[in-house]
Design a protein around this nucleic acid. Structure first.
Lengths: 111, 111, 111, 111
DNA sequence: GTGGTCTAGACCACC
DNA sequence: GTGGTCTAGACCACA
């Protein structure tokens, strides 16, 4: 697996998990691979994957069962989409609109 | 001045200067404030501003005259616009459109 | 059965058994369910329940008879109450009162 | 500095910082010691202190200025008290009341 | 087996 | 100088 060096690996791993959830490869309620397994799989240090899982857990997308491992939360899909929509409408879209105006580009023409 | 902690301050400062050039506050051929002056103005370490000026200089937007300071290049506006328009239409806009579709958001409604 | 992830499950199970003894659901001298049975009942690994029983056994609340299983000790109620009351009045209550004062909360109002 | 082995060191460090803020030793807006400095001071690995600072940052109690270090948030005191009050009234107090009832203790007498 | 914590030490971007 | 990230490897509690 390859990573973009401009973004922390642990976040890119988390992104990847989210994507797999959105694509239905990891389903709500199901276990995801263990930290060690996934780390070996993608060739990074287990601590790095642990950090990815921890952030996903904080965001309510996966949860940990002691001694068992991490599983996809039942509302993971909603949580992810909700997160993304918020970021999009509150941050990315306004930024793009502002920039288009600054550059004198007419967005409607570009569609 | 406030900064987004997700992006290096020196780049945000450079962005700000580009914006002021686009808005006509700094005109081609004119000097811009000294590193020290600008740093004091926005409450930042002079090294940071120096780095901003350096990157702008690398991009041909400003230039340095020994003993004088930095001035706006004669073709600064074109340089900025060309650079930004390319990035915008080739990278940012397609990415945004793809994402909007992925999230099931209707862009036209959001305008 | 649901568990608080901040406290080991085996201790939470032990707490539950103590409670049932205090409530009279498990009476002194009577057998309690086997490790396997109880584990299946609450959906937990038998090892975990075994550990719960072990700690209760150490505290003199239940005892093991070879070939029979675990039973509630004759003085289990006293043992539990004595243990808990001491911990409560000497440790927990003073801590709570101290904290309430520190936070500027009036306990009497909160009842 | 000594630590209770039943609680992660990084959380105990965070607790200590909160206490110092409550006591006015670290004031809102002021810098707190750097990660490395504090780590050397209390004799733990810098990574451990970094984790403490990170959790405090997530909780809005301190904030990071790039290249400068961490400082106490302006509303740190409120944030801490708010956190503690919530934990107290929603978790600790109900637990204590429930336990008192189970033990047959009359709380009002104990005051 | 699982994840959680901690250490040691490295490299990096940024100020 | 600062913190952020990553690796390597250890030990532990828990299931």
């Amino acid at each position: 697996m390859e990573f973009d060096s401009n973004r922390p690996i642990y976040l890119q791993i988390a992104d990847g998990i989210c994507e797999q959830i959105l694509q239905g490869k990891f389903k709500p309620g199901e276990r995801i691979p263990s930290v060690r397994e996934w780390a070996a799989n993608i060739g990074v240090n287990p601590n790095t994957v642990a950090r990815s899982y921890e952030t996903l857990s904080d965001r309510g997308i996966i949860f940990n069962t002691r001694g068992i491992g991490f599983s996809v939360a039942s509302d993971a899909l909603d949580a992810i989409l909700e997160e993304e929509r918020r970021k999009f409408t509150e941050e990315e879209l306004p930024a793009i609109l502002r920039k288009a105006e600054l550059l004198g580009l007419n967005l409607k023409e570009l569609f």
